[in-house]
Nucleic acid binder design. Sequence first.
DNA 1: TACTCTAGAGAACGGTCGTTCTCAGTTCAA
DNA 2: TTGAACTGAGAACGACCGTTCTCTAGAGTA
Lengths: 185, 185
Amino acid sequence: MDSAVARERVLDAAGTLFYGRGIQSVGMDEIRTASGVSLKRLYALFPAKDQLVEAYLERRDTAWRGRLAQHVEQRADPTERILAVFDHLHRWFGEPGFRGCAWINAYGELGASSARVAAQARAHKSAFREYLGTLVADAGLPERLAGQLALLAEGAMVTAGIFHTGEPALQAREAAAELVAAARS
Amino acid sequence: MDSAVARERVLDAAGTLFYGRGIQSVGMDEIRTASGVSLKRLYALFPAKDQLVEAYLERRDTAWRGRLAQHVEQRADPTERILAVFDHLHRWFGEPGFRGCAWINAYGELGASSARVAAQARAHKSAFREYLGTLVADAGLPERLAGQLALLAEGAMVTAGIFHTGEPALQAREAAAELVAAARS
DNA sequence: TACTCTAGAGAACGGTCGTTCTCAGTTCAA
DNA sequence: TTGAACTGAGAACGACCGTTCTCTAGAGTA
């Protein structure tokens, strides 16, 4: 098996397991079983669990933000693009296996003990906030709106994760529309 | 030492440690050392770690919501009472040792493996949401506003926890005021 | 075929942690 | 004073987990 393929399989397995059950609850042995990559090779690719966790969060970050951008780009109208963020959240919340935001969960679990995990959570949230900033700017709306929208989105992720329902996305979308309208007047 | 006193000391120590470092990262031995209560007695009071975790979250729930209500009750005007929730968050975020919402963190860490923890997170968040509902109703505002305010508050907690700053509370307060104004017109 | 190298399976190691047990000291009733 | 019951300190136990090691089988090569 190619080394790149093995790496991919490990990251796939680790991604599913870490996200679904939490990081500390998943052992390296289980990742080996799920990925079909031997322990020896696994440790050749990722010399320690920390590094696998880091790679997991990194890869998920680009995938998550990529999917979001892809969804938003289907809309042309600047205001609709802002609201499309919440539509995307709604779709995400409804996916099978949805269990909240991976970075919020990882931060809650390891933020206090791992500076790397904490930094990655901050980086991911900053990037998301930054992205909202560009959407808001493109719509000619005041910058401070982006922070407010980010709070709505974060709140929706947390609430949807805990209650296993997509409704928070709809509430957040509605609130976002009202804030946009208020900012415009 | 009285049994009630020992219980109190254990819960104090466990509260500080669990909240500050996460639940799985804190061993029973450390709680014994921090509380000064022997392991034997600790296990007589809480036959398993799960039960101590449960008691920790339960006690924190009543304390947290009690403090919130106490702060809100200092205001008479119904609209100001709603905004006082966010003032309270701001004060809380600035406290030393603040590390986000204990239930969001616990859910991220154990929500997938412990049905009890998941249920307690839901109960706490439901109670908070319910409380916002009464404030909104007292102000003669539409019920759906409560859900939106809850999302802002949750988002502020998450963001403040990850970035160690109180600013999200101010942003959320501002957004809340705008949503209240929008709902009234 | 015989040799070498690689890689996988899983046993083994060392440490941690939840939980229980031992033992010595203390209290207190008779 | 004696003995029974309790208590605390911490050792011990058993399970788990991250990481390393061993052993064996197979592939490639001369």
